[in-house]
């Protein structure tokens, strides 16, 4: 009757989203009066850290494959494992891997599925869980009646706390089937936190006037240790790379702090960022719609304000 968490790793290191998922699994298991198991695939260096955040047992499926992730192969392996231990709730991260796997596992296990959940389920009367819909414009509560349930947890929904569970690491005897995919190349941007996982985001739009002006944005992001993002027209004009595009038709994010610079706040932009905990808007137009969605606003010319903000943060960090 346990809770099983698929803990993702990237190049052999447990992902931040996996700690969140394990901690969520731990809390849910406590409410259900059961244990939280974690499962990983491939060799993972810091696998025992999953115990710190709440896994009572960590099962490792060995992989000799050159394909780090294949949803078809993983669904079979994790599905079989879940059945073997009688897992009743399977938790994934709502990440590129988790999203590809959630629907597959739900079918394989004949389970109910709710993706992108943002809170712990209410198990006091049935099993109810919430998620945000319409790109952040609404919230809904789902009832899950199936015996087995699959959930994917949206990033940054809860902060993992150290609880020091047993965290016993055991090899699993599940074998991965041969993958039907071949990896040709994996290209990653090194040194920055990927946008969906970022806690601090500095984002800029058409108010920047020219791609050559982005130096002040990059400097601010560097001072803060933030990840950079942009509005859609900026990515469409190739001023910035596509993966920085946030909004309804780009990446949806929920960082702790979102600083929007020279972005008007169109409804489609807001849809992808309105779940950020704190929003700061810098815009020279006091009528810009973004101010209505902001916690803090600075009405001024970004070319003056941004360098000043950068200096103020540097000063605060030094002092």
């Amino acid at each position: 009757m346990s809770v099983l968490v698929f803990a993702e790793n990237f190049k052999g290191t447990v992902k931040k989203s996996a700690f969140e998922a394990v901690h969520y699994g731990h809390k849910l298991a406590a409410e259900m009066g059961t244990d939280c198991h974690a499962i990983t695939v491939g060799s993972v260096s810091n696998v025992s850290d999953l115990g710190k955040y709440g896994a009572s047992k960590i099962h490792q499926i060995a992989s000799a494959s050159t394909v780090d992730f294949d949803s078809q192969q993983f669904s079979k392996a994790i599905g079989t494992f879940a059945k073997n231990i009688g897992a009743k709730v399977i938790i994934l991260s709502h990440s590129s891997q988790g999203k590809s796997l959630a629907g597959r596992l739900a079918i394989r296990l004949d389970a109910g599925l709710v993706t992108a959940v943002n809170q712990l389920p209410d198990v006091s009367d049935g099993f109810k869980v919430t998620k945000s819909l319409f790109s952040g414009k609404a919230i809904s509560t789902y009832s899950m009646d199936s015996e087995v349930k699959v959930l994917s947890l949206i990033g940054n929904a809860l902060a993992p706390e150290v609880v020091n569970a047993a965290g016993e690491v055991v090899p699993s005897d599940i074998e991965l089937e041969a993958s039907k995919l071949t990896v040709v190349e994996t290209k990653t941007v090194e040194g920055t936190v990927p946008l969906p996982e970022a806690e601090l985001v500095v984002s800029a739009g058409r108010g920047m006037k020219d791609p050559g002006n982005w130096g002040i944005i990059e400097e601010l992001a560097e001072t803060m240790g933030a990840t950079t993002a942009c509005s859609r027209p900026v990515a469409d004009a190739d001023w910035r790379p596509h993966h920085e595009h946030v909004g309804q038709t780009g990446v949806a994010i929920r960082p702790n702090l979102y600083i929007a610079i020279g972005i008007s706040g169109a409804i489609q932009h807001l849809a992808g960022v309105n779940n950020s905990k704190v929003i700061v808007v810098i815009n020279k137009d006091p009528e810009a719609p973004f101010f209505k969605a902001a916690d803090y606003g600075v009405v001024g010319d970004l070319f003056d304000v941004v360098p000043r903000l950068n200096e103020a943060i540097k000063k605060a960090k030094a002092g």
Binding site: Y142, A294, G297, V299
Partner: peptide, 19 residues
């Protein structure tokens, strides 16, 4: 296997503080 019980609108921002 699942059903939606309830829809809600998110609580809006309480108002912007200008700096």
């Amino acid at each position: 296997k699942v059903s939606i019980d309830q829809y809600e609108l998110p609580a809006g921002k309480s108002g912007v503080k200008l700096i």
